[in-house]
């Protein structure tokens, strides 16, 4: 039994905790994600049609009436559901669950663009390449060589910066050690000015995320749908403790 537990602790089950009490809604994570993951900018018209490609967005809801009005912020990204509604509807297995990282993968070269997955996602976390968006030269110089540049007709979404997970794992294995808590940080958590985003391994009970998930402020978005999200929010602001 202890062996089994020890093995489980080594297993990867990546998760994220977002503390809404200190998330200021500043959008630095959105920009960081876009710069890391070669996300194309689509321009004003396409943004207005709701075709923005941000993998992460800050949901802002106005609460109350003037003068007691205040916005509530919630960063929304792919929740990497344990039981993901997007997966069973894909006819070509382009979106599927990873056995290793325990996240939802989007395999761009398999995707044929049916957009069933996006329609079935309760979090609106998926974006679709309606066009080949131009990044005028020499601006393409900053593209991250670790991330595929997607073409038209392909669905995409937050990957938990899987390129960083793979790199971190390779580095740890080259150094002959296990991945440690804090080795891997996705671009959003790395940039977050208030450190509201924490990333780590949920199968390790001693990791920072596992401890935070046990907080009494923790909740998961649309948990009642049975999606088993891997992103946990900590209630904040005026709803603190509520």
């Amino acid at each position: 039994m202890t062996e089994l537990l020890a093995k489980e602790a080594h297993d990867e089950k990546w998760g994220m905790v977002i503390d809404l009490d200190i998330c200021s809604g500043c959008q630095a994570c959105v920009t960081a994600c876009s710069m890391e993951n070669n996300i194309p900018f689509v321009g004003e018209d396409e943004m207005a049609y709701g075709r923005g490609m941000q993998w992460m967005r800050i949901r802002r809801y106005w609460e109350g009436e003037y003068p007691e009005v205040t916005p509530d912020y919630q960063p929304m990204l792919c929740q990497q559901c344990g039981s993901a509604p997007c997966e069973p509807v894909c006819p070509v297995f382009a979106t599927l669950h990873s056995e290793v990282e325990k996240i939802n993968l989007q395999v761009y070269n398999r995707c044929i663009g049916t957009r069933y997955c996006a329609n079935n996602c309760p979090y609106h976390a998926r974006t679709f390449n309606w066009f080949d968006y131009e990044i005028p030269a020499p601006m393409n110089s900053y593209l991250n060589p670790d991330v595929t540049v997607r073409r038209r007709g392909v669905m995409e979404k937050c990957t938990f910066c899987v390129q960083r997970i793979v790199k971190g794992r390779q580095q740890a294995s080259a150094e002959g050690r296990e991945i440690e808590d804090g080795d891997i940080t996705p671009a959003c958590a790395q940039a977050c000015p208030t450190d509201a985003i924490t990333f780590g391994n949920l199968s390790d009970p001693e990791s920072r995320v596992s401890k935070m998930v046990r907080s009494d402020r923790a909740y998961k978005e649309l948990e009642n749908l049975g999606t088993e999200p891997r992103v946990t929010y900590l209630k904040g602001g005026k709803s603190y403790g509520g």
Partner: peptide, 16 residues
């Protein structure tokens, strides 16, 4: 372009 396309935190307006 990415500052233009990153929404304003309060209004979520982009590119304008």
């Amino acid at each position: 372009p990415w500052l233009q396309e990153t929404p304003d935190p309060m209004t979520t307006v982009t590119w304008n």
